[in-house]
Simulated scan of single mutants.
Amino acid sequence: MTVPQAADAARRARISARVMFLVVVGALLAVVAFAVHSTVEVYEAVAAGDGIETLDQPVLRAAIDVRSPGLTDLAVTLTALAGRIGTPVLGLVALGLFTWRRRDWTPTVLLVTGLLGSLCLTVLGKRLTDRARPPRQFMLPPYETSPSFPSGHTLNTTVLAVIVGYLVLITARHLLARWAVVGVCTVGPMGVGMSRIYLGAHWSTDVIAGLLVGSAWAFSVVLAHRVWLQVRRRERLDASAGTTPELDGGGATAAPVVPST
């Protein structure tokens, strides 16, 4: 490859990287904006009392009507996996697997940042709203006493699922493995949310808020990582561009240093 061809290839690579970066950032920003807007709408409905009248009570009655021993066992299991012990354990397992596979700090930074942030959002949301849970006579054990809005189980599980799914997409080589895990990470938070309604531990709008807030925060973490990767990529491309051509003593142009591909 000649020097002009190498320079042209490097230029095209930079343009392609910029376009892809803008597409990814735009898509992630759209998801975050939609989640934030929808969360505000849900919160306003809850604060005005509209959520209980139009959605929460009918959904809770429907969940009570379909209760059975098998479904109850499944709901209790999902709640345990997404609880105060289950979520940290799942996070540590994911952290260990990804760290072993990738041999870098990316899983640690993303998972720790995501889960600590989701915990803070859960505590903050509950303190701001102080919403009462469904009446005790509608609940199944384990009983909850903390404020209801948003659903912490759902929020934390959503954050963990999104970040794990993202790490799988950028780590796994097999297409089938990627989409199988992404499918599980998509269905998992929804199943946890439904289990919380089924057990009578949350109103449906609590679960919706947990899904939306968790998605917004998790995609914000992913977006920050994509920006960081793009900055690193630009630095490497600039470093590999070589030296500026200069005239030597005989008037010929000295060839720049071109990195091997």
Score class of each variant (00 low, 15 high):
residue 1 M to H: 12
residue 2 T to I: 11
residue 2 T to A: 11
residue 6 A to T: 09
residue 7 A to P: 06
residue 7 A to T: 11
residue 12 R to G: 04
residue 14 R to P: 03
residue 16 S to V: 13
residue 18 R to Q: 13
residue 20 M to Q: 12
residue 22 L to Q: 12
residue 23 V to F: 04
residue 25 V to E: 06
residue 26 G to C: 06
residue 27 A to I: 13
residue 31 V to P: 01
residue 33 A to H: 04
residue 38 S to N: 11
residue 42 V to H: 00
residue 49 G to N: 05
residue 50 D to Y: 07
residue 52 I to V: 13
residue 55 L to V: 13
residue 56 D to C: 08
residue 58 P to C: 03
residue 59 V to D: 00
residue 62 A to K: 08
residue 64 I to M: 10
residue 65 D to H: 08
residue 67 R to K: 00
residue 67 R to P: 01
residue 68 S to P: 10
residue 76 V to W: 08
residue 81 L to F: 09
residue 81 L to C: 14
residue 82 A to D: 02
residue 82 A to I: 02
residue 82 A to F: 00
residue 83 G to C: 07
residue 84 R to T: 12
residue 86 G to T: 06
residue 87 T to W: 01
residue 88 P to T: 03
residue 88 P to N: 05
residue 89 V to I: 15
residue 94 A to T: 04
residue 95 L to P: 01
residue 96 G to K: 09
residue 99 T to S: 14
residue 101 R to P: 02
residue 102 R to A: 06
residue 104 D to S: 15
residue 105 W to K: 13
residue 109 V to N: 07
residue 110 L to W: 01
residue 112 V to H: 07
residue 114 G to I: 00
residue 117 G to L: 05
residue 119 L to I: 09
residue 126 K to I: 05
residue 127 R to D: 10
residue 130 D to C: 10
residue 131 R to E: 02
residue 131 R to P: 05
residue 132 A to K: 08
residue 133 R to G: 08
residue 137 Q to G: 09
residue 139 M to K: 04
residue 140 L to D: 04
residue 141 P to N: 05
residue 144 E to R: 06
residue 144 E to W: 03
residue 145 T to S: 15
residue 146 S to H: 07
residue 146 S to T: 15
residue 149 F to P: 08
residue 150 P to G: 07
residue 151 S to I: 07
residue 151 S to E: 00
residue 152 G to L: 02
residue 152 G to D: 03
residue 156 N to T: 14
residue 160 L to A: 07
residue 160 L to P: 00
residue 166 Y to F: 12
residue 174 H to N: 12
residue 179 W to H: 12
residue 181 V to S: 07
residue 182 V to T: 11
residue 188 G to H: 12
residue 191 G to H: 02
residue 191 G to K: 10
residue 194 M to S: 14
residue 194 M to G: 14
residue 194 M to I: 12
residue 195 S to F: 00
residue 196 R to E: 02
residue 196 R to C: 02
residue 202 H to S: 06
residue 207 V to C: 07
residue 209 A to W: 00
residue 211 L to E: 04
residue 212 L to A: 05
residue 213 V to P: 01
residue 214 G to W: 03
residue 215 S to L: 14
residue 215 S to H: 08
residue 218 A to L: 04
residue 219 F to T: 15
residue 219 F to I: 10
residue 220 S to K: 09
residue 221 V to M: 11
residue 221 V to L: 08
residue 221 V to Y: 01
residue 221 V to E: 04
residue 223 L to R: 10
residue 225 H to E: 13
residue 228 W to S: 10
residue 228 W to T: 09
residue 230 Q to F: 11
residue 230 Q to E: 12
residue 231 V to R: 14
residue 231 V to H: 13
residue 232 R to C: 09
residue 232 R to L: 14
residue 233 R to I: 06
residue 236 R to F: 04
residue 238 D to C: 13
residue 239 A to R: 14
residue 241 A to Y: 00
residue 242 G to Q: 05
residue 242 G to W: 01
residue 243 T to I: 12
residue 244 T to E: 08
residue 245 P to M: 05
residue 245 P to Q: 04
residue 246 E to V: 14
residue 246 E to S: 15
residue 247 L to G: 11
residue 247 L to C: 11
residue 247 L to A: 15
residue 258 V to Y: 05
residue 261 T to L: 13
